[in-house]
């Protein structure tokens, strides 16, 4: 559905994107991950026909974005990371405006808009002025706006940013529903656990380069971040971290005020041996537990060493 080849974008001498290639199959939910300013928004606005690449091609549904922008616009619903609303419009009028702008005839819109409002749980706000809505509601309204022309692809730039936890959960539920509807979704975030349970694939981007990309599980395997062991001690984290670095099967050690995080690739027997070893060093262990490695660990693992993959 989406095909990006050697995409580069320069702003003056600043390279926002360096030779990015990416394929996203129909119906896939793709998580775009990376720190702020890494190039996520640039990639998304190129796909949304709002910026031109310096070189390379990007296709949506087979249509090259710079050659057939109109065809591409028909197929995408784009939600920018920062967006405004027309204050003096009511929620239904707001959707009518965008619906009409996509050429949907009024009788169809009359039927469609209540369904969309229902999908994003805003039916009770249909006649409210947009500026009276809360941020989370505006975000959901904007999502409904992306859907008026029933696009195949949704490009959502940080849809959960600035939302309180409750609004985030609501947003996530809606996205799950959209996934069930078979939409291809590209969603960017720097808050990884948000994405963890709903994305099929992730692409990690940093300094304009795609440093890892693929199925979440594949990436975890490739990086051999099998498990993370979390050890809490009585204030001896630093000396423990120092000693652990030379142990076998330890790929990296991070220590912070919550304890020591050990990326460990040994099996259970070796792990119990490690615990015995730690205790034999005379370090007062408070807890020694295995944490399920999640996307965030993957992310930290990938980005801490700079571009490597």
């Amino acid at each position: 559905m989406i095909e990006i080849r050697n995409l580069s974008k320069k702003y003056g001498t600043f390279e926002a994107l360096k030779n990015i290639s990416l394929d996203i199959e129909k119906g896939t939910v793709f998580g775009f991950v990376g720190p702020n300013g890494a190039g996520k928004s640039t990639t998304m606005s190129i796909l949304a026909t709002l910026a031109l690449p310096t070189s390379g091609t990007a296709k949506v549904g087979g249509y090259e974005v710079t050659d057939y922008p109109k065809e591409v616009r028909k197929r995408i619903g784009y939600m920018p990371d920062f967006f405004g609303v027309y204050d003096q419009l009511k929620a239904t009028e707001y959707l009518h405006f965008y619906g009409a702008s996509y050429g949907i005839p009024r009788p169809d819109r009359e039927k469609l808009i209540p369904q969309l409002l229902d999908l994003v749980n805003l039916s009770n706000k249909a006649d409210s002025y947009v500026d009276s809505l809360s941020r989370g509601m505006k975000q959901r309204l904007c999502l409904a706006r992306c859907l008026v022309h029933d696009p195949d692809v949704l490009i959502l730039d940080e849809p959960a940013s600035g939302l309180d936890p409750r609004a985030r959960i609501e947003m996530r539920e809606i996205l799950k529903e959209l996934k069930l509807m078979g939409k291809t979704i590209i969603i960017s975030s720097h808050i990884l656990p948000e994405l963890a349970e709903m994305v099929d694939e992730i692409g990690v981007i940093e300094h304009g380069e795609m440093i890892a990309q693929g199925k979440v599980a594949d990436i975890q395997n490739r990086l051999r971040v099998k498990k993370v062991i979390h050890i809490r001690t009585l204030d001896q984290e630093n000396s423990l971290a120092e000693k652990l670095r030379d142990e076998p099967f330890v790929s990296s050690v991070l220590s912070d005020n919550t304890g020591v995080h050990v990326h460990y690739s040994g099996d259970d027997a070796q792990q119990s041996e490690l615990l015995r070893q730690v205790i034999s060093w005379g370090i007062p262990v408070v807890s020694f537990q295995e944490a399920q490695s999640n996307l965030e660990d993957v992310f930290l693992e990938i980005t801490k060493g700079g571009p490597s993959a």
Binding site: T49, F83, G84, Y86, S101, H149
Partner: peptide
């Protein structure tokens, strides 16, 4: 400035 332009530009207008 009100950040509505990008959404207007991605419509069919």
């Amino acid at each position: 400035e009100k950040q509505t332009l990008s959404m207007l530009l991605t419509t069919q207008q």
